[in-house]
Design a protein around this nucleic acid. Structure first.
Length: 201
DNA sequence: ATCAAGATTACCT
DNA sequence: GGTAATCTTGATA
């Protein structure tokens, strides 16, 4: 694998916490109207299958979480709080139900389009740049991700993730997951230490 | 049929 | 630090 190659499906077909940590530093790419926007993944959370109380898959398959039970490498997008979308990468074998929530991205390419989508203007301040993709719903708004992208395959051309070298373990912080009320003791949130684009320290 | 909760964000004091 | 916004879904009856 080199820096210009898409992650192969096998990358996603591993134990979910390993994949979550491994996704840090990788490049998330979205094609909108033939234009590319992209950024580095700097914060994620792991949600396991039926054994994780905080996971959407915990109570089994429903119409909402059906995509989570597909095989590795699909995009699971859900709607929450009446106004927000969040994007996850499906992990593991078909029927397992694990996913990695993308929580923060450091913008790289197409910043004016990301800014237009989120703030309805193309030129933003440094402060607004740090606020552009520092949260799961902010990412979806900036990258134009909603119901229509639920279930798409990351091996296609609309949304995909590019290889980048592994972030060393010494540079990865591990904390409790944000915004959940069950399994609050598990340290399954991972982010790149000292990266200013994460949602919270 | 009804209802509470939600993997969040923005704005307020 | 507190909370309103906003609506779909899944559980219960």
């Amino acid at each position: 694998m080199n820096n210009l190659s898409k992650l192969p499906i096998e990358f996603y077909n591993r134990e979910v916490k390993s994949v979550a940590k491994s996704l840090l530093g990788k490049i998330f790419v979205r094609r909108i109207d033939g234009l590319l926007v992209s950024g580095r993944i700097v914060e994620v959370e792991a949600y396991d299958g039926r054994n994780d109380e905080a996971s959407h898959s915990f109570s089994g398959m429903t119409k909402r979480n059906e995509v989570m039970f597909r095989n590795a490498g699909h995009l699971y997008v859900y709607f929450t709080y009446g106004m927000h979308f969040c994007a996850n990468v499906v992990i593991g074998k078909e029927g397992y139900g694990a996913a990695v929530l993308i929580r923060a991205i450091e913008p790289i390419e197409g910043i004016s389009m990301l800014a237009k989508n989120r703030f309805n203007k193309e030129n933003i301040s440094p402060k607004e740049l740090f606020n552009l993709c520092s949260g799961p719903a902010k990412i979806c708004q900036a990258f134009g991700i909603n119901r229509e992208q639920n279930g798409i395959n990351l091996s296609g051309g609309e949304i995909y993730i590019l290889y980048a070298p592994e972030i060393p373990a010494s540079k990865i912080a591990s904390t409790t997951r944000i915004g959940i009320k069950k399994s609050i003791d598990l340290l399954w949130r991972y982010y790149i230490k000292d990266n200013p684009f994460v949602s919270k320290k």
